[in-house]
Amino acid sequence: MYDFEYHKPGSLADAVKLLSADPDARPISGGQTLLPALKHRLNKPTSVVDLSGIAELKGIKREGDKLVIGALAKHFEVATSPEVKAAIPALAQMASTIGDTQVRNRGTIGGSVANNDPAADYPSAVLGLNATVVTDKRRIAADDFFQGMFTTALEPGELLVAIEFPIPEKAGYAKMRNPASRYVMAGAFVAKTGGAVRVAINGAGPGVFRQADMEKALTANWSPDAVAGVKQPADGLNGDIHGSAEYRAHLVTVMAKRAIDAAG
């Protein structure tokens, strides 16, 4: 790892100032993705800005019909939070399966969503639940936030502050993990919120995406059988030594069925 300066600002305003002043500065929270990337010298920041002391980024709370999760909430906190378990149990269940115990003790929801790894879990929950990403500057709808592999609507120096999840009537998540790396080969997050159905697919493509045919089928009939006949096209899906695009396309339907089953 190349050396860098380390800053730990105490407020959001100070963090934004540090990040805006230097285009080669990088924010860090849990560091479970950034530090491995720095070890591989994939990135050479001049400084890292540790967000962990910023109170504005913390907390999990129910606000009316929304669940608001601060960017710094660790996966372990989301997995065990009584508020999350009561409002969106599928989200708590998802968090309990990210990485391993030690990764969950450090990694944060803000870091995972801002990184938008195609094989990450949280992006499918954010998209499937039609959540709103709140930054220090604006509010971004999930449909506009995720823009393909490791790419989001966040501008340089813009910080993810919190995610607002509308509370669904039903929601479920299922994934097939790579047996060695445990990253997602294909996952599906299904949700019915205010009568509207959304199906978000992660792991299978270069970025999280909505499966419109499954959404239509589930709107007519909320059951695993409704999506059993919906074929995901393999075009554009990831194909690698772990599985072909056709295999992942097949998994998308299987995972969607399981997710609906889990949602009940």
Binding site: Y6, I28, G31, P36, V48, Q102, N105, R106
Partner: peptide, 8 residues
């Protein structure tokens, strides 16, 4: 518990 190789 944390992995001490992945925390500064």
């Amino acid at each position: 518990s944390v992995k001490a190789c992945t925390i500064l």
